[in-house]
Computed example of a mutant assay.
Amino acid sequence: MPPKGKQATKGQKQIQEENQSTLKFYMYIIFGINAAYLVLQYIFFYDSFTALYIILFLWAVGVNFGSYKFMSSMASKGIDLNMEAGMAEHAKDVILVTCIVQSISLISNYFWLLWLLVPGRAFYLLWVNILAPWIFAEAPEVDEKKQKKMERKMRRH
């Protein structure tokens, strides 16, 4: 049962503290997965640790730290990182998907293909929120008075 009355708002100090703990949590995830990936690749797959593994690892590191930097820049502006349906939510999702894909890719390199879900999701959000409403928007209604005025103007020319 939801509480009665107005929902309490967070103060700027509480938002900053929560942002710092969120950033710390995601930094631990990023460092932990990357360290585990390198160690396990080196120990178990040393003979097959090729340029492909290095490129994929560097790709994952770049994506993770790019998303982390985006989140930290939002936090420095005082934006709540734990707000639902915000841009930080998407950055957190990208970090988590990248870390999950990176960890299960130790089983098979084909799991890197799951990372294609991220641009697919980005295109879906672009389509649903921007492109489709713009393309399929109904033409604005013109009232009769303006329509007659436009017709008279067209006949004059």
Rank of each mutant, 00 (worst) to 15 (best):
M1T: 15
P2T: 04
P2N: 04
P3H: 14
G5N: 04
G5L: 04
K10N: 06
K10L: 15
G11C: 10
Q12L: 15
I15N: 01
I15P: 02
Q16D: 15
E17H: 01
E17L: 11
N19F: 08
Q20V: 13
Q20I: 15
Q20G: 11
T22G: 03
T22M: 05
T22K: 04
L23I: 12
L23E: 03
L23W: 03
K24I: 13
Y26G: 00
M27W: 07
Y28F: 06
I29Y: 00
I30K: 05
I30G: 08
F31P: 06
G32A: 09
G32S: 11
G32F: 04
A35S: 14
Y37Q: 01
L38E: 06
V39W: 01
Y42N: 08
I43E: 00
F44I: 06
F45M: 11
F45Y: 12
F45K: 12
F45S: 11
Y46S: 09
Y46N: 12
D47A: 12
S48F: 05
F49R: 05
F49E: 03
A51Q: 09
A51N: 09
A51R: 04
L52Y: 00
Y53H: 14
Y53G: 02
I54M: 06
I54F: 05
I55T: 15
F57C: 13
L58A: 13
G62R: 03
G62I: 04
V63T: 09
V63F: 03
N64K: 03
F65S: 08
F65P: 05
G66K: 02
G66I: 10
Y68E: 03
K69E: 11
F70K: 13
F70H: 12
F70Q: 07
F70M: 13
M71H: 09
M71V: 10
M74W: 05
M74P: 03
S76W: 06
S76P: 08
K77F: 03
G78C: 12
I79V: 15
I79T: 07
L81T: 08
L81Y: 07
N82L: 03
N82E: 04
M83Y: 12
A85R: 10
A85M: 09
A85V: 11
A88F: 01
A88G: 02
A88V: 09
E89P: 04
E89A: 12
H90N: 10
H90G: 13
A91G: 03
K92Y: 02
K92M: 08
V94W: 00
I95C: 00
I95Y: 02
T98R: 01
T98K: 01
T98H: 05
C99V: 04
C99Y: 04
I100N: 02
V101R: 00
V101F: 05
Q102K: 07
S103F: 08
S108F: 07
N109H: 00
N109R: 09
Y110C: 03
W112C: 01
L117H: 05
G120Q: 06
R121C: 07
R121P: 00
F123C: 13
F123W: 12
Y124G: 01
L125H: 09
L126I: 08
V128C: 10
N129P: 07
L131I: 15
A132S: 10
W134D: 07
F136V: 11
F136C: 11
A137W: 00
E138M: 05
A139Y: 03
A139V: 13
P140G: 11
P140T: 14
D143W: 05
E144T: 15
K145C: 12
K145M: 14
K146P: 06
K148L: 13
K149L: 13
R152L: 13
M154T: 03
R155Q: 12
R155I: 09
R156I: 08
R156M: 10
